[in-house]
Design a protein around this nucleic acid. Structure first.
Lengths: 117, 117
DNA sequence: CAGAATCCTATACGATACTG
DNA sequence: CAGTATCGTATAGGATTCTG
């Protein structure tokens, strides 16, 4: 089983800097290369696993599953698996995840301004 | 010299996923554990190197310098060194860096809501 | 004061192959 | 379809020491 941890941004000095800073808190939740992209995709509505793969072609299955799990653990994403064959699994943003919309939007706006220059 | 690269978030598949996504673009600029914190500190006004170290006690000098350099390269932060002895170096947000304020603020707001639950 | 240099560890991510 | 498992690499970050 190996119990993959891989909890986003690293944090070696365990005792010291555990989230006194709200910005760090956020980066721990949506930091990394893929999580914001996944959330951004889900912002346009619930998607099945295969739809996410198509929407983000560059991501590997490992990364997608891994970050989806992490996002579930952090209560940003809900997973609904319907017990049929073949399986149908749908991912959607939780209320908390939906609340990230302003953050992502602010990022997108800034990116456009920055790329102008 | 070794030419340290250390350009934020990794990107192995060089040819493929180079910034088609605005969110990725932003994460490349302010991703990682320290950059948002540094920017957040500078949002309250210009600060000297030593002030930054005091404001962010957990950061090592290497990380602080490294990310300050990166932020300069990305035109988010300005560095002003006055040629006196002992040296006086002041860091401040560039206009582009200042434009990140809504992003950071949105993060902080979300963090507070998230930590309530 | 404001850094540079060196060495090291943890982990994020990629590639590929396999499964209920 | 929706995952798991395993191996390998790149890089973020830490600790310590030294300097103009």
């Amino acid at each position: 089983m190996t119990q993959v941890k891989e909890n986003s941004t690293r944090n070696y000095n365990k005792g010291i800097s555990i989230n006194n800073c709200p910005v760090t808190y956020v980066m721990n939740k949506i930091g990394g290369h893929w999580k914001p992209i996944i959330i951004h995709q889900l912002m346009s509505g619930p998607k099945r696993y295969s739809e996410l793969r198509k929407a983000i072609p560059e991501i590997t299955e490992k990364m997608l599953i891994q970050h989806l799990k992490q996002l579930q653990t952090d209560d940003l994403v809900n997973r609904e698996a319907r017990p049929v064959v073949p399986p149908v699994v749908t991912y959607s943003l939780s209320p908390l995840g939906t609340d990230l919309t302003p953050v992502l939007n602010a990022m997108v706006e800034w990116a456009f301004r920055a790329q102008q220059c």
